[in-house]
Design a protein around this nucleic acid. Structure first.
Length: 558
RNA sequence: GCGCCCGUAGCUCAGCUGGAUAGAGCACCGGACUUCGAAUCCGGGAGUCGCAGGUUCGAAUCCUGCCGGGCGCGCCA
């Protein structure tokens, strides 16, 4: 927010410079306020002079010296000495800003009263966004891959919510079709097997141990009364119910809930599937060949057309996917975010083509593709195979590491990167585990604040807190971190990048730990103690809010 | 063969819309607890940012080509 203030002042100077004829307005909106890497380059800097020089040269052909422009700018900046300690030119023409400590100190007066709401957008931005994630069909327990997606989607939803969007979380699933039939058959087969009756396990059946559990439950409930039934429905329905219950349970353990479960089947029942085909047909974008119905995806930049209805009369997965997305548009969302695993890449262009074909704006749909997770134990990759169902489930992983560690690890990497989940690191209760580094920061700080109370150290009121005493470089760094948090949330939300929050928290916790080891919060100096306790108070709010934003706990003791 | 993603320190990874001497954690070595929590801190070494061109005042970041790894490329989802 300090950056924003500075940006405004800078815009004023730019306009004044135009008026005075120092430069033209060609560079308007092209310059930026940045945060330099090194502290001796100021709190912020701008490339305005270099950008102006570039534009002027392009416009007039005359060479312009950026440092000269910077000189004018610095003159204009003199009237802003209320927030600026000084501004200086550096390097090829940067102007570096040194903000007055009093400005940084004043952030304490923003965080503390705001408390839980610090870092949340002050007001709704009026935009509705739908986040679709997990969307696993009920054929088995959630695997680690789903786990990454679940945590990623959930945290993105939390971020968007914090940034002022109205967020809906949706789980899209299909409990009809071949997959589910096979599930039913697998269950029946296990049922018969457990009863000691002859059975035939389907060739591509689900081999997981969990199918036995379901069959066992079925026997408990119905005995052998289902032994001669031809219909797989009772088996399928039982399996689906059990598995969904299981998935829900897993998600709850992770702290994840959905606003809506959207059943693919309803798209058929409500005629949306047929309607999409009809609309595409009207537009001349489908044709029949070899008994199948094809969608002219080549009209939308693809190499080949795609089948949307098989010769058997059954739609391919593409058609309901397109229909589903059209429904999202119809439901009035301004932004639709889909979280998919890397193995679903191929479907994205088809859905986008469908959206455009139906006359909707596909730029309103953002697909976050996350890469795979590899589990490492003792330096070796844990082999996983879906087919034999010897993959590691989210539940098993949760048993080992717990929800906080799991969330943190899944959020540590940007979605684009493959994620290496180091089980030894995740299970280690100390030292190198980064999760505890942040949580310990919060716990330590909590305990200090409590201790201060017990010792009778007076914090006093915020209004007359002597914040001007917070002048140590470490204190100013912490204050800057606190100040940066709200805009970080906004940017991380808009970029759908929760990992930035993780990195920020690690850094902020690091600043605190260093500070703690060098200075004392509670000392004989009553005023200094008051100021530092308020600093700690503000810092704790940010650590806590950040952890909660990641869906983690902020323990006061550990 | 085609499409998407990745390639930065020994390992795992940050690096926001191109910016000034490329960062962190782990691992390794050496230090710091009679005082607010040592799950912490302080110090140290370590990198031709895969390679080659190009755009620019300026490139880890943008463009092109190549090399290496992952995932896809079905009338499966």
């Amino acid at each position: 927010m300090i950056k924003k203030r500075l940006q405004k002042r800078l815009d004023q100077c730019f306009a004044e410079g135009c008026q005075k004829g120092f430069w033209s307005d060609a560079a308007a909106d092209c310059y930026a306020v940045e945060e330099p890497k090194h502290e001796n380059q100021g709190d912020f800097s701008t490339n305005m002079a270099m950008v102006i020089a570039g534009r002027e040269k392009k416009a007039t052909g005359k060479k312009v010296n950026p440092r000269e422009i910077a000189g004018h700018l610095i003159k204009l900046l003199e009237q802003h000495s209320d927030i600026l300690e000084r501004a200086e030119t550096a390097g090829p023409g940067f102007v570096n800003f040194f903000i007055k400590p009093s400005v940084w100190q004043s952030v304490v007066k923003l965080v503390c009263p705001a408390d839980e709401s610090y870092g949340l957008a002050a007001e709704e931005n009026g935009k509705r966004v739908l986040v679709e994630f997990v969307s696993a069909n009920p054929t088995g327990p959630l695997s680690v891959g789903h786990g990454r997606q679940a945590v990623l989607g959930d945290c993105i939803a939390r971020l968007l919510d914090a940034a002022g969007y109205e967020v809906d979380r949706e789980y899209y699933y299909n409990d009809a079709g071949r997959q589910m039939r096979v599930l039913g058959e697998s269950t029946r087969s296990r049922y018969l097997e457990l009863l000691g009756l002859p059975f035939e396990f389907p060739e591509d059946g689900y081999q997981g141990e969990y199918i036995y559990d379901i069959a066992r439950e079925l026997i408990e409930e119905k005995g052998d009364s289902l032994r001669d039934i031809e219909d797989v429905a009772p088996f399928k329905n039982k399996a689906e119910a059990c598995i969904f219950k299981d998935i829900h349970g897993t998600l709850i353990r992770l702290g994840i809930t959905f606003d809506k479960y959207y059943n693919e089947h309803s798209l058929y029942e409500n005629g949306h599937i047929d309607d999409v085909v009809a609309r595409l047909r009207d537009k001349g974008l489908v044709y029949e060949l070899d008994g199948a119905v094809w969608f002219k995806t080549t009209k939308f930049g693809q190499k080949q057309d795609r089948v949307i209805i098989k010769s058997s009369g059954e739609p391919t997965y593409r058609l309901p996917d397109i229909a589903y997305h059209r429904e999202k548009f119809k439901r009035g969302y301004d932004w639709m975010v889909d979280i998919f695993g890397a193995d679903h890449i191929a479907t994205v262009p088809d859905v986008m083509a469908g959206i455009r074909a139906l006359g909707y704006d596909d730029s309103k749909v953002t697909v976050v593709l996350h890469q795979f997770v590899t589990l490492m134990r003792q330096g070796r990759q844990v082999k996983m195979s879906t087919r034999k169902a010897n993959f590691v489930t989210v539940d098993e992983l949760l048993d080992e590491v717990g929800p906080d560690v799991m969330r943190f690890f899944f959020l540590m990497r940007k979605a684009d990167s493959q994620l290496e989940f180091d089980l030894d690191l995740a299970t280690s209760q100390s030292q190198e585990n980064p999760v505890y580094y942040v949580q310990y920061g919060h716990a330590r700080l909590s305990s200090i604040l409590k201790m201060a109370e017990e010792k009778g150290a007076k914090q006093g009121t915020l209004d007359d807190a002597p914040l001007h005493l917070l002048v140590e470089p470490e204190e100013l760094r912490i204050l800057k971190g606190i100040a940066a948090y709200p805009s970080l949330v906004i940017h991380a939300a808009n970029d759908l990048a929760p990992h930035r929050i993780v990195f920020f928290l690690q850094e902020l916790a690091g600043l605190f730990h260093s500070y703690y080891n060098k200075y004392r919060f509670i000392s004989d100096d009553a005023d200094l103690t008051r100021a530092r306790l308020w600093l700690g108070h503000g810092l704790r709010i940010v650590l806590r809010n950040g952890l909660l934003l990641l869906g983690m706990t902020a323990p006061e003791k550990m």
